[in-house]
Simulated assay, not measured.
Amino acid sequence: MSTEENLFDDEFVEATNKLIEIANEMGAKHGEHKMGVAFIYAAARFNAYIAASSVTSADELSGKRDKAVEYFTDRFRKLYDGNLMDYIANFEEYMGVAQSEQSETAH
């Protein structure tokens, strides 16, 4: 679980976009909030599997639990904050505010 790994290559972006595409489809069907929580749960479940697959016993996993929780929660916090900052910087573009304002003034 090295924090030095470079994950943001083309393969990473492709996988991320596919996961977001699936979340958007499911969000349209079941609601965005529910899918947001489902996405977090799925990430937590999958990453618990990643942590478990890196050891050979439950005792070893238990011994590494605190470090794994710290790693994944820190990673989530940094990625989430970075994405929120991106949305703040690009709010009008991402959320279509400029387009909807133009539409309102055109009528």
Rank of each mutant, 00 (worst) to 15 (best):
M1F: 00
M1A: 01
M1E: 00
M1V: 01
S2W: 07
T3V: 04
T3S: 05
E5V: 02
L7M: 03
L7Q: 02
F8L: 08
F8W: 02
F8C: 08
D9E: 09
E11F: 01
E11C: 02
E11A: 09
F12Q: 01
V13Q: 03
V13P: 00
E14W: 03
E14I: 01
E14C: 02
A15W: 02
N17W: 03
N17M: 03
N17V: 01
K18R: 05
K18A: 07
E21C: 01
E21G: 01
I22G: 01
A23Q: 05
A23S: 08
N24H: 06
N24R: 07
N24V: 08
M26H: 04
M26R: 01
G27K: 04
G27R: 07
G27D: 08
A28L: 02
A28Y: 01
K29H: 05
K29N: 06
H30G: 02
G31L: 05
G31R: 02
G31E: 07
E32K: 10
H33L: 14
K34G: 11
K34A: 14
K34W: 10
M35P: 07
V37Q: 13
V37E: 10
F39K: 00
F39S: 01
A42D: 08
A42R: 04
A43W: 10
A43C: 06
A43V: 11
F46D: 06
F46C: 13
F46S: 07
F46Q: 14
F46I: 10
N47F: 14
N47H: 11
N47Y: 08
A48Y: 04
Y49M: 10
I50H: 12
I50P: 00
A51K: 03
A51G: 07
A52L: 03
A52S: 12
S53Y: 08
S54A: 13
V55R: 00
T56W: 02
S57M: 06
A58L: 05
A58D: 11
A58T: 05
D59Y: 13
D59I: 11
L61I: 08
S62H: 14
G63H: 10
K64D: 09
R65T: 15
R65D: 08
R65E: 07
K67F: 04
V69E: 11
V69F: 14
V69Y: 12
E70W: 14
E70L: 15
F72C: 15
F72G: 05
T73V: 10
D74G: 08
R75V: 11
R75E: 06
R75T: 12
F76D: 04
F76R: 00
F76Q: 01
R77C: 13
Y80W: 14
Y80G: 03
Y80N: 02
Y80P: 00
G82E: 11
N83M: 14
N83H: 14
M85F: 09
D86V: 12
D86E: 09
I88T: 06
A89K: 09
A89N: 14
A89Q: 12
N90Q: 09
F91T: 00
F91Y: 15
E92S: 07
E93S: 10
Y94N: 15
V97Y: 13
V97F: 13
V97D: 05
A98Q: 03
A98R: 04
A98G: 15
A98M: 04
Q99N: 09
Q99E: 12
S100E: 15
S100V: 15
Q102M: 07
Q102A: 14
Q102H: 09
Q102L: 10
S103G: 07
S103I: 12
S103L: 15
S103M: 12
E104H: 13
